[in-house]
Simulated scan of single mutants.
Amino acid sequence: MPSTDRPDADDTSTRAALPDYWSFVDAAQRRISQEFPDADLMANRVFLSLNRSSSTATYDFESSIHRPAGGTWSSFRLLLALWVAGPLNPNEAARLTGMSRAAVSNLTATLVGKGLINREASPDDGRSVTLHLTDAGLERIRTAFREQNERESRWAAALTDDEQRTLVRLLEKLMEQRERIGARTRK
């Protein structure tokens, strides 16, 4: 007897009704409203849509720009942080990129091996290191940024300038709530 807690795995009619992600969101909203009548469906839809949109664009950037150039989305984020902020210690780099300290450490080893960044003893603390872009790293981030920004422009062309500004304002407004709601962030 199938469980009533989840859709039947053999129910091909459910799978057939989910041809793409946005149909999945609609199906999720129906399912959630049945099991959780008091759920905030609009908040759920906002974050399902935000997460999917972000991951889709990120995958596009990585697969069309960064991987063909021998990089990754994570390496782009670290090179970008060093380009924008200048030399950083690994903890600062982790905070700015949204990566864990361990991920930055592993990525640093790879990027040092490729000659894109240097790791030097910190002048302030001999136990710590500072990460710097090399000339090759500077060239790589400039090239990658130029290509990504062209791709970003193609994505954003679906919106008018006013719609783009509105979207940015709304996202910034959401992020302003981090402290008020006690959102967890990487330290």
Rank of each mutant, 00 (worst) to 15 (best):
A156T: 10
W155M: 04
F24Y: 07
W22A: 09
N118W: 06
V112Y: 04
T185Q: 15
L171A: 12
A109S: 02
M175R: 09
M1E: 06
T108G: 04
E150I: 06
P90Q: 12
E92C: 06
G137C: 02
S100M: 00
G98A: 12
A158T: 12
A121Y: 14
N89T: 01
A69Y: 02
D20L: 06
H66N: 14
P2G: 05
D125Q: 12
L50C: 12
L167T: 05
I117L: 11
F36C: 05
L111R: 09
R119E: 13
M1C: 10
G113F: 10
K187Q: 15
D26G: 10
A156N: 04
E172Y: 05
V168F: 11
L82H: 00
E152V: 15
V46E: 07
L159P: 04
H132E: 04
A121G: 15
M42Y: 14
A156D: 08
S53N: 13
T160I: 04
S49T: 13
A69Q: 01
T56D: 15
D10W: 15
I117W: 01
T12K: 14
L171C: 12
S75L: 05
R15E: 13
T72W: 03
S13G: 10
R52K: 14
M99I: 05
Y21W: 15
A28W: 00
R52L: 03
N149G: 10
L82P: 06
L80A: 09
D5M: 15
E172G: 07
T58Q: 14
K187A: 14
N44H: 05
K173D: 13
T166Q: 02
I141R: 00
S54L: 10
A136G: 15
T14Y: 14
K114D: 02
L111H: 05
L111S: 00
S55P: 05
L107W: 09
T134Q: 05
Y21P: 06
T110L: 08
G86Y: 07
Q29R: 13
D40F: 06
A158E: 01
M99A: 10
T56P: 09
R178M: 06
D162H: 09
T12H: 11
R154G: 12
G98Y: 09
P68K: 13
W155V: 10
R169N: 00
G86H: 11
R77P: 04
W73D: 00
A17S: 12
A28M: 08
N89H: 00
G126M: 13
P90S: 03
Q164P: 03
V84H: 07
P90R: 01
L79W: 03
R45Q: 11
S128N: 15
N44Q: 01
D10A: 13
T108A: 07
E139M: 14
A57V: 15
S33E: 12
L41T: 01
T14M: 11
E139L: 14
D38T: 04
